[in-house]
């Protein structure tokens, strides 16, 4: 592997990392709103509160972990004073 290929690969990773950061709220929205569309059926009968409470607490915690991981990865990809996104000037 020559050096140039390595650099390109890193830039590519960075850009995908930013894509992930931008798409994270879409995932969160899907997880938050998905259940109500399933449950709002014609019968109007919801699900068990307890079960859904556990579901929401779990995905919530999962999203916190995901967000922390993304933040850390972005921090590593754009070290020091350079804020994420600077390189591509979006």
């Amino acid at each position: 592997m020559n050096r140039r290929l390595f650099l390109e690969r890193r830039t590519y990773r960075r850009n995908r990392l930013q894509d992930a950061a931008r798409l994270a709220p879409v995932l969160a929205g899907f997880l938050f709103f998905g259940p109500v569309f399933i449950l709002t059926s014609e019968t109007g009968v919801g699900g068990g509160t307890g079960g859904w409470l556990v579901y929401f607490l779990l995905i919530w915690a999962g999203l916190v972990v995901l967000s922390a991981a993304l933040s850390a990865a972005l921090g590593r990809a754009f070290p020091q004073d350079r804020a994420p996104g600077e390189a591509e000037g979006d």
Binding site: R22, A24, P25, F32, L63, S67, L74, P84, G85
Partner: peptide
């Protein structure tokens, strides 16, 4: 708010 903060980058 959780949604907004998860989407902070945007």
């Amino acid at each position: 708010p959780t949604l907004v903060f998860i989407g902070w980058f945007w």
